Simulated assay, not measured.
Amino acid sequence: MARPRQPEFDKKKVVAENRRARFDYAVESTYEAGIALTGTEVKSLRFGEGSIAESYAQVTEEEVWLINANVPEFSHGNRFNHEPKRPRKLLLHAREIARLHGAVARQGMSLVPLSIYFNSRGRAKVELALAKGRKAPDKREYQKEKDWKREQGRLLRQHG
């Protein structure tokens, strides 16, 4: 029997997406986390700027931090502008943080941000994945499976 899929988060406007993450990592579960931002960071994200390509999340004591995410300076921010690659605090429930900390510490998993988006209430959110790294043979197998599913869809559309 197939494993039931988790419901998708309410994404209204996706600002930044880490498309490489699903290829490099086998995603076990996903979490929606709030992100603590300053005013100029929010404005910069609303203009669609930002990148999480080389970023990761880190659990320290009882907090989760987004490291190396690039939110460029806001053009009209003058002296109130922010540092583009500063660590940003992620907002999660204490139980979720404890679960993530246990998985990272004991099972050797990684916390990878998949996307930054604004939800229907206009709040900036991060889709965070608890994932295991894939080795090169696993990546090739994943690519073959993905290509076969795409080909299957084409065949079904043509002959169905």
Rank of each mutant, 00 (worst) to 15 (best):
S55M: 05
R22C: 08
W65R: 12
Y31Q: 08
R19V: 14
Y56V: 14
L90G: 05
I67E: 15
I35Q: 03
S44Y: 02
E32R: 15
E63C: 07
R79K: 11
R19Y: 12
K85E: 11
E54V: 03
K89R: 15
L45K: 04
E49Y: 07
Y25A: 07
I67G: 00
G39Y: 11
E73G: 10
N68S: 09
V42A: 05
L90S: 07
F23M: 07
F23R: 06
G50R: 13
L66H: 04
L45D: 09
A33S: 03
F74I: 10
I67L: 12
E17W: 09
F74T: 01
I52M: 10
G34P: 11
A57S: 08
E73P: 02
E63H: 15
S75M: 03
V71I: 15
S29A: 12
S55D: 03
P84W: 09
N70L: 06
A53H: 07
L37H: 02
N78T: 10
Y56G: 08
A21W: 01
E83Q: 05
N70A: 05
I35G: 11
Y25G: 00
V27R: 03
P87Y: 02
S29K: 09
S29R: 07
Q58D: 15
E62Y: 00
V27M: 08
K85M: 15
A57I: 13
G39K: 04
N18Q: 12
S51F: 00
R19S: 12
E49H: 15
G50K: 01
F74E: 15
F74G: 04
V27K: 04
L66P: 02
T30C: 14
G48K: 03
